[in-house]
């Protein structure tokens, strides 16, 4: 009879030192600290910030980025990035809008067509990256121009406005006259993303591809195919974000959605998803999205110019990534005993 031995998790014997207790919560510690700081600041400067209606406005602003952030979390976990999402959102929304306004399509088929456009754009992104071996960053940057250009050509400078329900209801309506519908859509997408991430091969293989590409290959995971799936999901979510955006203003133009990519990437990374893949969190993305929306809202309320919002979101991105890099460096140098 043989005995089972327990191998101790000797901290010093490990290849890398186990990070401290907060490692488990690392993806939300940073943004939670910032949220608390923000809450304290607003308690001092502007109590109206905490009124229920304002909270609902924050949720409304965050909603689009919940949808985008869900897919982006999976894309980034798989060591990808998608800079074309703003153009994809605009293009699919413009096509949906033109089908309704110019072609007289009923609303639901037009919405479906918009989603198909997004899915197609995402598929093209994935194929360009995996079949032509163009790096994710450059491929989607170039595709951003292409999608934006096509959108501009199609819309020819027009602003399409006033859409039938359910588009305005989805974009700016309130469910039960209380909670923004868009936020409910966003939360449903994040919940779906949580399930995809934790309970399906899509999320599991994204982690493997981003974390250890060779290991993923050796276990027989088809990396190309998985990456195409990531971009297909991203394109689909961008189209849905485009519908929400259209409904929110009840108008759409081909220049809409500029800055979506950086804002979404910021929220995802602030939420603790590793920018270079292998680790991520849907819950972290929710926290990141809310943080960015809260900061923007606070700046508006404190009557800062719009341009300061850009400065603030830039600072938040740099601060968060710097914070994670610092923790990572510390973890590594402890283990190696150098620098």
């Amino acid at each position: 009879m043989t005995m089972t031995t327990t191998i101790p998790a000797d901290k010093n014997a490990g290849r890398k030192v186990a990070l401290p207790w907060y490692e488990r919560y690392i993806n939300i510690v940073g943004p939670l600290v910032m949220i608390i700081a923000l809450v304290i600041a607003m308690l001092i400067f502007e109590r109206r910030y905490f009124e229920f209606q304002n909270m609902m406005i924050i949720l409304q602003d965050a909603a689009i980025f919940m949808v985008l952030g869900m897919a982006m979390t999976i894309v980034i976990t798989g060591k990808g990035i998608d800079l074309s999402i703003g153009a994809v959102a605009a293009l699919s929304a413009v096509i949906m809008a033109m089908l309704i306004k110019d072609q007289g399509w009923p609303v639901y088929p037009a919405m479906l067509a918009g989603v198909v456009v997004g899915l197609t754009c995402g598929t093209i992104n994935g194929l360009v990256i995996t079949r032509l071996n163009v790096p994710d960053l450059l491929a989607t940057l170039a595709m951003d121009q292409i999608y934006r250009g096509i959108g501009l050509v199609l819309a020819a400078g027009a602003v399409l406005a006033r859409f039938p329900e359910p588009i305005p209801f989805l974009g700016r309506g309130r469910a039960f006259d209380l909670i923004p519908t868009a936020a409910i859509v966003g939360l449903i997408f994040l919940a779906l993303g949580f399930v995809l991430y934790r309970y399906t091969w899509l999320g599991r293989y994204a982690i493997a591809i981003g974390g250890n590409r060779e290991a993923a290959v050796l276990t027989g995971i088809n990396i190309r195919r998985q990456k195409v799936y990531h971009y297909m999901l991203m394109g689909t979510c961008a189209a849905i974000a485009g519908i929400l955006l259209t409904g929110r203003l009840n108008a759409i133009q081909a220049t809409a959605g500029m800055g979506f990519a950086l804002h979404t990437i910021a929220a995802v990374v602030v939420g603790g998803t590793a920018l270079f893949g292998g680790r991520g969190s849907m819950f972290g993305t929710l926290v990141g999205v809310l943080l960015l929306a809260m900061v923007t809202n606070a700046l508006v309320m404190l009557r800062f110019q719009f341009f300061w919002q850009l400065v603030a979101s830039g600072i938040i991105i740099i601060a968060s990534i710097g914070f994670y890099s610092y923790l990572q460096r510390r973890g590594n140098s402890d283990a190696k005993g150098d620098d």
Binding site: K16, V195, Y199, T200, W201, R204, I207, A208, G211, N212, E214, A215, A216, L218, T219, G220, I221, A274, G278, R279
Partner: peptide
Amino acid sequence: GLVDSLPAPENVFLGVEPIKRIFGLPF
């Protein structure tokens, strides 16, 4: 060839995960 960010069971079963069907969908 381990994926560092995944726990032991996820590594042991990487690529050959046991599937449970809920409403016909593989989880």
